[in-house]
Design a binder for these strands. Structure first.
Lengths: 338, 338
DNA sequence: ATCGTGCGTGTAATCGTTTCCAACGGTGCG
DNA sequence: CGCACCGTTGGAAACGATTACACGCACGAT
């Protein structure tokens, strides 16, 4: 593969001049510029990004650690992140942690070894030494969706509280009183926050959230299935199951179906995170939708601010309730939200 | 960040020796090794992958160009590719082409600039100059899922023909005679092959595939919706719609629902690519499942073979029919395949 | 004519590694 | 005793780019 030296030889100039035209440095004569450009064309030359990075100490690459690529919420996020980054001239390398802290650490380590310019993280756990070290070590970093309390890193996320309040009000209005939740891992902020928001919202209607109605999940379908089975085995099973993410909702649906129960007649179901398939499940699932596109864009903007030395901003965007039929069907909603 | 020089100074040896212990070169004394290791530990030293790549001319990184990250089939593929690559000591950088040739080319270009060791491609079009150049230029490359005819590059893919034959037999047995297909772009192999397989299978039952029953899609949900609407507007609409991928099936379902029709009583639906949600749609959707895990593993193996100079193998794996309820419900299938 | 100025250019150092080569002291053998 | 060889080590040259610095030249001002 042709190097800058070959181009210089072909154009009859020095490598410095070639480098200058490539980086559109002002002081180079039109004549030299033309010759260099011609040589570049003739040789099909492309600058070696590795060498350039070594010299300039920047890779124009962002790392993105997501908790699970198979989760449509995170792929939507990844897509918008990549798009926003590309618009700013950055590439992004995605690391899939699969909700496993050690895999997350592996990815952070290799990304750091590659000297990425900045890191976007949705932490799988409550603070691996790897992340903490990176943050302290001065790696530009932004948390997205989930974050780690006590670490001084900007956070870009959606606030689900109002939407959860709307959801609970919706459920209450439909006559549901025994509401259960399948929570995410307590080590993640989204795992614990959603339970708290749910509990608070219940409180506003004079309801409580007994321990038996809190299922412990891990954001994967299987855990949703298991938690739901435990609910159904209770002497007094809940009449609503609220899954803290879309995969656990899928598992819950599996379990409910396996018990021969109908949604929403026998038991209602709702989920955090909205995905296109929720429109076509049987029945369509009521969900809390996050603005993934805006989230991704805001996260990239914040990270690039850190990288380029501007003061970064934490951002909190609102999530919103999307009512469908999985909780019951009040007249006022029937037509509007398929 | 500490460099190899700092480690050398700390350990009281030369950089050459440090490099040797880091690369477990045999000829270094136990004493020196111990001192270097201690220094590495003390400084928290991590080798700079950028510098190493520049020197060794290898990045231990694979590029993966997929057509659409939002498509669960491709994310499943990406996940298995990453897993297999990691097991072999490679990282993978995913480029999402969003079914847009120019985006695909953009990603190929930046991946090549980064000097990735090899490229896994599921081409969005019938042969962009970018891909052709790379292949001719000697970049180790393997096609996965889709490929480009006439290019001498190993192909790892699933053969859908037998499964499509099974599907058509299944449909025929249920009494369906007017079968339509929503095809992918003709520029992709999966776009045209699936139509041919379908047409051939129809032929075996003495059925034909009229042009009006071939919808032109682009593997995105919207196109599935539009194609289905066109089918439904026909004087004699089909009684089966077979979507060539899962997203177009989603769109088809949208359109059918919007027309107030029921699946499978009014019209049957089947899809290429099976995804977890198909179990819970209304009704559960009959689909052709590809062995994504095996596909990803085989693709990585083939690519690494090319990279390391071994003779690579094209691989074709079988896809299989998964019968659910979206085409009708013969007694013999009722219980076995939820 | 002289000087400073500024533009265009080339030389060479540098980034952090790997690796070739030479050198070293010690050992064994002819 | 001399020599070849061995295991261990360090010096230094790459890899392909960027960029500080210096140089040569033409020009306008003095």
């Amino acid at each position: 593969m042709a190097s800058i030296k070959d181009v210089a030889a072909e154009a009859g100039v020095s490598v410095a001049t070639v480098s200058r035209v490539l980086n559109s440095h002002p002081s180079v004569s039109p004549d030299a510029r033309a010759r260099v450009l011609a040589a570049v064309e003739a040789l099909g030359y492309r600058p070696n990004a590795v060498a350039r990075s070594l010299r300039t100490d920047q890779t124009r690459t962002l790392g993105l650690i997501i908790s699970d690529v198979l989760n449509p919420y995170f792929t939507a996020l990844a897509r918008s992140v990549e798009e926003a980054a590309r618009a700013l001239g950055y590439s992004v390398i995605i690391g899939n942690a699969d909700e496993r802290p050690e895999l997350q650490d592996h990815h952070i380590r290799t990304l750091l070894d590659r000297r990425i310019d900045g890191l976007l993280v949705s932490p799988t756990d409550g603070g691996s030494p790897q992340i903490l070290d990176a943050a302290r070590g001065g790696t530009p970093m932004v948390f997205v969706d989930r974050w780690i309390p006590g670490v001084d890193v900007p956070v870009v996320r959606a606030d689900g509280c109002p939407a959860v309040r709307d959801l609970v009000a919706h459920l209450y209005r439909l006559g549901h009183r025994r509401l259960a939740i399948i929570a995410g891992p307590a080590a993640t902020t989204t795992g614990s926050e959603r339970v708290e928001a749910f509990r608070d919202a219940l409180g506003e209607h004079g309801l409580t959230l007994p321990d038996a109605y809190i299922g412990q999940g891990d954001f994967q379908a299987d855990s949703g299935r298991r938690a739901t089975e435990r609910f159904l085995a209770l002497p007094e099973p809940p009449d609503v199951v609220f899954a803290a993410d879309n995969l656990m909702a899928l598992g819950a649906l599996d379990a409910i179906r396996a018990h021969g129960l109908r949604v929403p007649q026998d038991i209602a179901l709702a989920a955090f995170d909205d995905i296109p398939w929720f429109v076509h499940t049987d029945p369509p699932i009521t969900a809390i939708a996050q603005p993934t596109g805006d989230l991704g864009r805001a996260a990239v903007r914040a990270l690039v601010d850190v990288i380029e030395g501007r003061p970064p901003q934490s951002v909190t965007l609102p999530a919103r309730l999307v009512v469908r039929r999985s909780c019951g069907e009040p007249a006022s909603y029937r037509r509007s939200n398929l």
